[in-house]
Design a protein around this nucleic acid. Structure first.
Lengths: 166, 166
DNA sequence: CTTGGAAAGTCAACAAGGCTGACGTAAATT
DNA sequence: AATTTACGTCAGCCTTGTTGACTTTCCAAG
């Protein structure tokens, strides 16, 4: 993968023009990425923020509010509002910590898990179609570039989730 | 989930687990993607909505309001609010159409172009680092998967931009 | 043991930026 | 002449971000 003369085998993929295409691709793709769950959420009284909370509680059952905060990157007040409605509606259960009573441990109820499945099914359908259309090699590249784009802090969070150590 | 003899060289990359990783990668990467411009915008009185308008006006100088609307996928009221402040602040110029006087053609002023450069420079720095780290093959896969994720309508918009026919 | 601070969570109020609906105007099209 | 199109605007609503102030709980230093 290395080459003669200067530094690069054709660094043409690093031109401003190529980068611009990548930037626009991210913009348009993200719209598609969120479109299907958004449609489901629209019917209910929920929004994208609720989806994110549900997703990560599902991923890491028993996680604390603080933990969730650092993953979502919003203020606790903002998260709290979302969490409150989810708890009121019986989708999320909040248990006072055994060891540290200041902490609240979060779990999806059966009803919450049901909505989670519905949302992630919808999102996966599109994702699977895209993966299948692009093929395994492309998917690997896709993941590599995305990881390289993350802030270091978030990359660590992502990798922790990825490897199952919630 | 797969039948042995049939079509697939290991379709393991289509498992729910792999898809979930891709979904989370999109989430975390998009945060990084917008982080640098957001920091710049924060200082000024602008937000992400202004950035998007500026970006696409820069990309397609002379584009009409309607055109921009269909690319951004927001309502005209929403866009108008953003556009109004940009025009008031002298970053964007709106010229009445020559052929069709109902239309307004949008252009960046020198000042607008200056901000655009600042914003896209910041965004490109990260993008370039990610591309370089991942390599050209990964970048190609990245773009392929993103394109496959887009809604068909948006994909058409994206390809039109990509090919320069604004 | 007490006390002072830090940490987790809650409440209140505000802002950005989406949205819908209604309306006005000028220009183009039928 | 009537209708449609492109654009702008006013009013009001919702979601989801923000900051500031407050309570409860925990822990560590005196």
């Amino acid at each position: 993968m290395r080459e003669p003369g200067a530094g690069g085998e054709s660094l043409l993929f690093l031109t401003d023009e190529q980068l611009r295409k990548g930037i626009e691709a991210m913009f348009f793709a993200y719209r598609g990425f969120t479109a299907d769950p958004d449609r489901i959420l629209d019917g209910l009284d929920y929004g994208r923020a609720h989806h994110r909370a549900i997703h990560f509680i599902h991923r890491s059952p028993g996680t604390t509010v603080n933990n969730l905060l650092s993953i979502l990157g919003v203020t606790k007040q903002s998260l709290n509002r979302v969490l409150r409605t989810l708890i009121e509606d019986g989708l999320v259960e909040s248990r006072v910590g055994k060891r540290d009573k200041r902490e609240r441990h979060l779990f999806l109820t059966a009803k919450g898990a049901e909505l989670e499945r519905q949302l992630s099914d919808a999102q996966r359908v599109r994702m699977r179609a895209a993966y299948r259309a692009a093929g395994p090699a492309a998917v690997q590249g896709f993941r590599q570039v995305l990881e390289a784009m993350m802030d270091p802090d978030l990359r660590r969070q992502y990798q922790a989730l990825k490897e199952g150590r919630a």
